[in-house]
Design a protein around this nucleic acid. Structure first.
Length: 255
DNA sequence: GACGAGCGCCATTTCATGAA
DNA sequence: TTCATGAAATGGCGCTCGTC
């Protein structure tokens, strides 16, 4: 509960989340008591972890999603967090994952997050894994049903060859289709242009390469498929809202 | 490394055509 | 009618160069 008037908005938002499912068998819920996704670290870092978790869902990276939940439950157990609170936070994350899959990606699934019956952390882990398995199955069904094989192949081809000289012409020859037709299908099915997808692949790879402090930005520029460090810097800033140097400094805790 | 200007090429869009 | 492709116009991307 908040007393000052200026905190009404915060109170309202928290109430919306807390009351999102009336089927939960608890009388009271104290939102601020819920543990964070990574117990023991600050709020900002937690936000980053949560953002990464959402990216894993969007990318369909189920191995990492499983790992996130396992890590969260293990850490909560080690820190002696209350089981009910951990269970509630887990439900919240599952619910968000469900919203991303359904709302953003059109994945139909019928998993109901009523409540966990678990009486210890081991059972909680097992229940969560079951929920995740069901969600993953829905995701896989959706993929096979709606994503044409050709577009899937082209996506993989771009990911695998993003660091090379790549064009719609080359892809067209690879799959035996017109570059113009490929461009149209790509936009229709993925909602983004071919070049946008290619750029994101390159920037993602660059972000990973920046973890190596021995690699210069010039080297990374060439490693990801660009030929000009200046242009790479411009594209990186446009996509990431920060310069390559600033990003790397934050990554390596040099701020 | 960051930024801006300028240029050429390429991707996208729109419309049209032909084949099945 | 649908699918695959082509032509033309247009806008934006990618790059170079110069400067700080």
């Amino acid at each position: 509960m908040y007393t000052p008037l200026e905190q009404v908005r915060q109170s309202y938002q928290e109430s919306l989340i807390a009351t999102s499912d009336t089927a939960i068998p608890v009388k009271f819920r104290f939102y601020t008591d819920l543990p964070s996704i990574v117990p023991g670290i600050d709020t900002k870092a937690n936000k980053q972890y949560e953002q990464q978790f959402f990216d894993y869902i969007r990318a369909g990276n189920w191995q990492e999603i499983h790992q996130c939940f396992t890590d969260f439950i293990d850490r909560s157990k080690q820190l002696g967090e209350n089981l009910l609170q951990t269970s509630q936070k887990t439900r919240e994350l599952l619910w968000i994952a469900s919203r991303i899959l359904g709302g953003e990606m059109g994945v139909e699934h019928h998993t109901q997050f009523y409540y966990f019956k678990s009486t210890d952390y081991r059972q909680l882990s097992a229940e969560v894994l079951n929920y995740l398995k069901a969600m993953e199955n829905s995701f896989q069904d959706h993929q096979s049903e709606f994503e044409a094989d050709t577009i899937h192949y082209i996506k993989q081809f771009i990911i695998d060859h993003a660091h090379e000289e790549i064009s719609l012409d080359r892809i067209g020859k690879e799959v035996g289709l017109s570059p113009i037709y490929i461009s149209k299908c790509f936009k229709d099915q993925l909602g983004m242009n071919y070049i946008h997808f290619l750029t994101e692949c390159r920037i993602n790879k660059a972000q990973k390469l920046m973890r190596d402090p021995n690699k210069t930005l010039k080297e990374i520029t060439f490693d990801v498929g660009y030929h000009d460090p200046n242009y790479f810097s411009k594209v990186f800033k446009k996509i990431c809202k920060t310069s390559p140097t600033e990003y790397r400094n934050k990554l390596l805790h040099k701020v």
